[in-house]
Amino acid sequence: MSGLILFFSRSGTSKWLLQRFAAMIVLSYIIFLACIFITHREMDYSEWLNLNKSMSMRFFSFLTVLSLSVHAWIGMWCVLTDYITVRLIGPKADFIRSICVKFLTLIITLYMLWVLQVLWRL
């Protein structure tokens, strides 16, 4: 919740912090998975499925995807506001950028919903 407040606030500091915090969650997920793979070298599909079926793992996976989405959205928004500007590509830039940002938001939202669906159906 506080993450969402940070995300929608106009403060650059909160966006910056949120992006770093999100990166830490993604990193911890990667490290966690790496540890699992190293310690369970013989894992078969059913074990893998059981692991992912557990509520805590579902939560962790979704949290990671949420973090990745937030991280990517902020990062892409920075790239778009750097390169799609009136200065660089002319007077239509603001319009084009707003389309790009909406498209980005749409793609990321759909992606999150899709992940949610995958996790739910396990």
Partner: peptide, 9 residues
């Protein structure tokens, strides 16, 4: 300075 551009760019 606390907006997304002034410092954080």
């Amino acid at each position: 300075l606390d907006d997304p551009f002034s410092v954080f760019r």
